[in-house]
Design a protein around this nucleic acid. Structure first.
Length: 830
RNA sequence: GCCGAAGUGGCGGAACUGGCAGACGCGCCGGACUCAAAAUCCGGUGGGGCUCACCCCCCGUGUGGGUUCGACUCCCACCUUCGGCACCA
């Protein structure tokens, strides 16, 4: 094979794309003698075309997959489609004449083609789409497993409703101060009967096992930790005065219970109506409750929202003192957290303090800070620190940390309360009032109630012919053929569940399906899952830090408990890539700063696009797009071409290993080659710093250009051959097409992507001379070249003997000499 | 408000364990090639000073302190930007 003079990326990329596909170069065996490596990038939602974020994600993943393959691993590197979801349905509603399924499939075709153009080394035989009945059958099956285990349940609750998406949302999908994660519309509350997963049962395990995830960014773990929001404290029951009722509160400060001067309920607390019935305050409280509930989450939780409240007329008794305190309702108490009721301790809680001052409620100090006397009358803020318990009966004198334990013990002994751990995590709402999702496999029978669809009847097929109208009800409810079913239990007439599942359910298990994507008898082949999982490297955007990653962890733990998988965590290592920016801002249609991957690939080729995106910034950081930077990478590949292509004849004729001891330029050239191998290997494997790996390769090319200038007679052909071969091998994961073309064009048989990763020879790195930096009083004043490996004393002697050192230290007293072997000598003189 | 990350040339970024700040790339300047241009190749390029040729000196990694022979790197205080959470009792 001969190589053209000019680098024709179009022809080269097209050729290898076809050949690799024909040869199924990236097909992976299920089991192999080689160690396994599961390299996974987050699969995309097929929204239309790939954007730069995708290109970045898949380029990063491909470098790792190819690198690991060359290092001798059996690498599973699959791709698929998170294919259910709202945009497809919204497109159908908007345009009327396009079906979500057709829209989705068309997008998949486009994006699959783009990924192939990009040259990503996927095993396409394993491609999956979550909207395929062969896939969602198992999504439904998994729902049933959770249902049978009591982890899927239906309940009526105030849920988040997005009026724009006309569906409910999980808590995790409500962001900021109460807006929809997808469309940024303000979310409303609605009372609805919905399906939930009991993720709260797993709160503690999800928290504890974060410790196992040493390969995850600290940032993501902290976000999950905060989201789970564990807090320790106590539950205390306060009897209502004159009624046979009690109010249970959750507090993290049971040591302050003697400082309670009032009680507050959330406006929506079920007891409110009972408390006010027949009282003078009833009307006022009702209108207050209505007023607060009317306000959206956004207004109610705004940072500067003022705390307001109202006396109910009722009182309750402090179970430890017997003292009677008023019960209020207030906007700052949330029904969803804890018990929806709070004991008011103004002296030791800032919110309670502000509230008490506003409504002239008494402040009672029960914790005295060391060396200070708090006076309720003059306090300007709550004291929340440590101290000694006072005004607290038998607990007086106890340090408050001990007090916490003592009070809990006391409560438990007297049956007044108990120690309790509380979590901020809520159960996962999975119902969606939409068509384009996996139907929830449940039927409702008037006689039998809620009946799960038997496994043999799966999948519950999504009908094709439905009317898309944004009614707030699933379009399936208007589809009689779907709606009417026979009850699996009694055979009588029944009604199907018309809600579909949150698409996060589909994406919580897809990485298991890749191991046996066409398996028909089970969700996956257990032996294969046990072999491949957990995923060794997962790569994706940090926006999934909570949603997808938490749900996937939850699913994995459930599957583990069900004996369906053997791993307790799904993803061993996680890499969260930064955003792609243009002019300092995230690329978006509205800002008009989008760079289209299509155009870049058309103009410069896939290799250049990949190289630039990997070179411009380290993966975790945001990347600033630069057209000129792309230009530079294109120039570099051309430079590689012009360097290697003319060697097509010469290279195969050269010996592959340099013979004997090398000297001069040949020795230097070989050292550079091996230094580069070391640097690139470490940058990829240890640090994921692809940008510095690429610059090291560039330096090797620069070095080869220099080497080429040396008279031919002085050059060692074997050194040249080794350098060029190493260059191509190192470049292969980054720019797979040009590396392949040049590899096979320089007389090599077989794909470069099946070659072993080069290893460096430590002996080649050794320099015979090293440059020692000479500092005087910490400032660089000279440099001395000394033989490698001389003793520290000799190094110091040589440095001190330098004319310049003598000159600069003349008339001064040398107080100290600090030698760093092989590197530096600092002389302290005055 | 709380939690987290980041501040380095004209720009993207590098400096791995406290040891030559600015690798590599872009841009810019100069040279070679050319009738000319593009492309390419070679060289220069943080700021300031100086007998602006050589040499040499000073300043310089958000700000102000500190530790150290030596600090982009460690410590304290602060400023700015970005991301997450948001009355969590």
């Amino acid at each position: 094979m001969s190589l053209k003079e000019r680098y024709d990326f179009r022809e080269i990329e097209k050729k290898w794309r076809q050949r690799w596909a024909e040869q199924e170069l990236y097909a992976v065996e299920d089991f192999s003698a080689r160690p396994k490596f599961y390299c996974l990038e987050m699969f995309p939602y097929p929204s239309g075309k790939l954007h730069m974020g995708h290109i970045r994600n898949y380029s990063i993943g491909d470098v790792l997959a190819r690198f690991k393959t060359m290092q001798g691993y059996n690498v599973l590197h699959p791709m698929g489609w998170d294919a259910f979801g709202l945009p497809a349905e919204n497109a159908a509603i908007k345009h009327g004449n396009i079906h979500p399924a057709d829209w989705t499939m068309a997008n998949i075709r486009t994006m699959r083609e783009q990924l192939k153009q990009l040259g990503v080394s996927y095993d396409w035989r394993r491609e999956i789409a979550t909207c395929h009945p062969g896939y969602y059958k198992w999504t439904q099956w998994l729902f049933l497993q959770l249902y049978h285990r009591g982890l899927a349940y239906r309940k009526k609750a105030a849920v988040n409703w997005c009026p724009s998406c006309t569906t409910v949302l999980a808590n995790e999908q409500v962001i900021g101060a109460g807006v929809c994660e997808r469309c940024k519309t303000e979310v409303e509350k609605r009372e609805l009967e919905q399906w939930f997963f009991k993720i709260t049962d797993y709160a503690q395990r999800l928290l504890d096992d974060l410790q196992l995830l040493t390969g995850w960014p600290e940032k993501v773990k902290i976000m999950q930790e905060n989201w789970i929001g564990r807090s320790e404290g106590a539950e205390i029951r306060f009897p209502v005065a004159g009624m046979n009722e009690e109010i249970t509160v959750f507090t993290t400060r049971p040591d302050t219970v003697f400082g309670v001067t009032y009680m507050v309920l959330a406006p929506e607390h079920p007891l409110v109506e009972k408390l006010i019935a027949g009282r003078a305050q009833a009307q006022a409280v009702r209108s207050f409750v209505r007023e607060v509930s009317r306000l959206s989450e956004i207004n109610r939780t705004a940072a500067d929202a003022e705390k307001t409240g109202l006396f109910t007329g009722a009182s309750c008794l402090n179970p430890l003192t017997g003292e009677q305190v008023p019960i209020l309702v207030a906007n700052y108490v949330l029904l969803e957290y804890g018990t929806g009721a709070v004991m008011g301790v103004p002296a030791h809680d800032q919110r309670d303090f502000e509230f008490a001052r506003k409504y002239n409620l008494p402040v009672r100090v029960v914790i005295q800070p060391p060396g200070e006397e708090l006076d309720p009358a003059t306090m300007t803020e709550a004291y929340v620190g440590e101290g000694i318990m006072v005004n607290s009966g038998v607990f007086n004198g106890l340090p408050n940390q001990e007090g916490i334990r003592a009070v809990i013990k006391y409560l438990e002994e007297k049956g007044l309360g108990r120690g309790r751990v509380n979590y901020r995590l809520r159960d996962w709402l999975i119902s969606r009032q939409r068509y384009w999702g996996a139907p929830i496999p449940i039927v409702y029978c008037d006689r039998c109630g809620i009946v799960p669809v038997p496994e043999k009847d799966l999948p519950v097929m999504l009908p094709y012919d439905v009317a898309f109208k944004p009614t707030g009800q699933s379009p399936l409810a208007d589809c009689p053929d779907f709606l009417h079913a026979d009850c699996p239990a009694c055979g009588g007439p029944a009604r199907r569940e018309t809600d579909t599942m949150d698409t996060f359910m589909c994406s919580s298990w897809y990485y298991y399906r890749y191991t046996s994507p066409r398996e028909e008898a089970a969700a996956w082949d257990k032996a294969k899952v046990d072999h491949w999982l957990p995923v060794d490297q997962y790569i994706g955007g940090v926006e999934h830090a909570i949603l997808h990653l938490l749900y996937s962890r939850f699913f994995t733990k459930v599957l583990y408990d069900l004996g369906l998988v053997s791993n307790v965590e799904p993803f061993t290592n996680l890499l969260t890539q930064g955003m792609v920016l243009k002019d300092g801002a995230k690329m978006s249609k509205s800002k008009g700063n989008i760079v289209s991957p299509e155009e870049i690939i058309e103009t410069y080729g896939a290799d250049t696009a990949r190289l630039f995106i990997l070179f411009a910034a380290p993966p975790e950081r945001d990347l600033e797009w630069s057209d000129q930077g792309v230009e530079g990478c294109s120039r570099f590949l051309n430079r590689v071409w012009r360097l290697v292509a003319p060697l097509a004849e010469e290279l195969p004729a050269a010996p592959s290993i340099p013979a004997g001891e090398l000297t001069g330029v040949n020795r230097e050239m070989r050292r550079l080659t091996h230094q580069t191998i070391k640097k690139v290997t470490e940058d990829i494997a240890v640090r994921f710093n692809f940008n510095t790996a690429v610059s090291a390769i560039m330096e090797l090319v620069n070095g080869l250009y220099q080497y080429r200038e040396v008279p031919a007679a002085d050059r060692d052909p074997a050194v040249l051959r080794e350098a060029v071969e190493s260059l191509l091998l190192l470049l292969a994961p980054f720019a797979p097409f040009i590396a392949e073309e040049l590899w096979q064009g320089t007389g090599h048989r077989g794909s470069i992507h099946k070659q072993s990763w080069p290893e460096y020879d430590p002996a080649a790195l050794v320099e015979e001379e090293v440059t020692i930096v000479v500092q005087i009083n910490g400032r660089v004043r000279d440099r001395v070249v000394v033989p490698r490996g001389i003793s520290t004393d000799e190094m110091v002697d040589r440095v001190l003997a330098q004319p310049r050192v003598r000159q600069l230290t003349e008339g001064k007293r040398i107080k100290k000499v600090i030698p760093v072997p092989g590197k530096l000598v600092n002389i302290v003189a005055s």
